[in-house]
Amino acid sequence: MKLPRALDFLQNPERFMTVSRWLAPTLGVLAAALILPALWLTLTAPGDYQQGSTVVLLPIHVAAAWMSMFVYACLGGACFLALVFRQVLADAAAKAAAPLGAVFTALTLIIGSLWGRPMWGTWWVWDARITSVLILFLLYLSYLALRAAIEDETKASRMASILAMVGLVNLPIIHFSVVWWNSLHQGSSTFGADDGDSLPTVYLVPLLLMVLGFMAAFGSLWLVRIRGEVWRRRARAAALRAAGA
């Protein structure tokens, strides 16, 4: 696959290492610069007339929920590139993305549960959205489990890539299959909501800042983890060379 020169670092490990060396910390600083004001705005926002102070949890919850799906899309895309075009960096990227996605998904579930206790009066319900996020979490876990269970690294990565792409096809189906149930979880109040349901600006601004901050944080951590993976492979290759010499 031929990429334009500016994007060449996505498939050339050498160029990737030079670009990610400054891109990863830059994104990290950007993440802090977005998340800290978002937290400050959330904490100082007036309490909702129904939800009181628990509304503070929502920007984190919603941002993490979006990230959990976004990261799975990244994982699926990376697996596709690794499987079809045999891109070494894409494989490292898939390996690096999966635990991060699992963490975002777990964060969504935990924060949502903490919010649900005072607001709904229950930690957990078997509702459509909650269940589909839980299954997304299980998909991440099965990817990680499969990857860990096969000793041969190349084979493990291809098997796991196939699984991730199967999961990608299944994700919308799983989502709509659980929507079939009646649900307690409220619908979306950000895009396409009725006027009465839409989010007021005091909450919308911190939410958007939080989402952008999470994006930047994910980008930074992802790059750092891919760098670690590249280093690990180089170290292994060097050890093999040394053993052979």
């Binding site: 299954i135 299980l138 998909l139 876990l141 099965s142 489990a145 499969l146 269970a149 096969i150 000793e151 041969d152 084979k155 098997m159 196939i162 699984l163 199967v166 999961g167 299944n170 189906i173 799983i174 299959s177 659980v178």
Partner: peptide, 23 residues
């Protein structure tokens, strides 16, 4: 087929397959 060549076959198959059984 995905768990071919792994050691903990049985449990692994269940973990892989059960999320896909949801629909």
């Amino acid at each position: 087929s995905l768990s071919l060549g792994s050691r903990r076959g049985g449990m692994l198959v269940a973990v892989i397959v059960l999320p896909l059984f949801t629909p």
